[in-house]
């Protein structure tokens, strides 16, 4: 079953998933077997940091430093990471 996000865990894209910049769509997309998701700017910012080395807590810290004016960023990132885990994008 799906698991809840842990801040000390370092997440990485699941096998078969690839994050890629698509010029034609002017955005990042997530590619997987026979499928594709077009990512919003903020979703791609989060996923680009999920390299299996940064912990979830570190991902939040890095983004807070990069976007100091964004309100409620930690909560948004946490929710998105949970969604990405539930969707099977991250492990």
């Amino acid at each position: 079953m799906n698991t809840a996000i842990k801040f000390r865990n370092a997440y990485v894209l699941n096998s078969g998933f690839r994050l890629q910049w698509e010029k034609a769509q002017d955005s990042y997309v997530l590619l997987y077997p026979e499928g594709m998701v077009q990512l919003s700017f903020s979703a791609s910012e989060v996923l680009l940091l999920c390299d299996g080395k940064n912990t979830a807590a570190e991902v939040i810290t890095v983004l807070e430093e990069k976007f100091p004016d964004a309100e409620g960023l930690a909560v948004d990132v946490k929710e998105f990471l949970q969604e990405a885990i539930d969707n099977g994008w991250l492990e």
Partner: peptide
């Protein structure tokens, strides 16, 4: 069975 979730592009 296409699982492309992007709407009409």
């Amino acid at each position: 069975n296409a699982k492309i979730s992007l709407a009409d592009s």
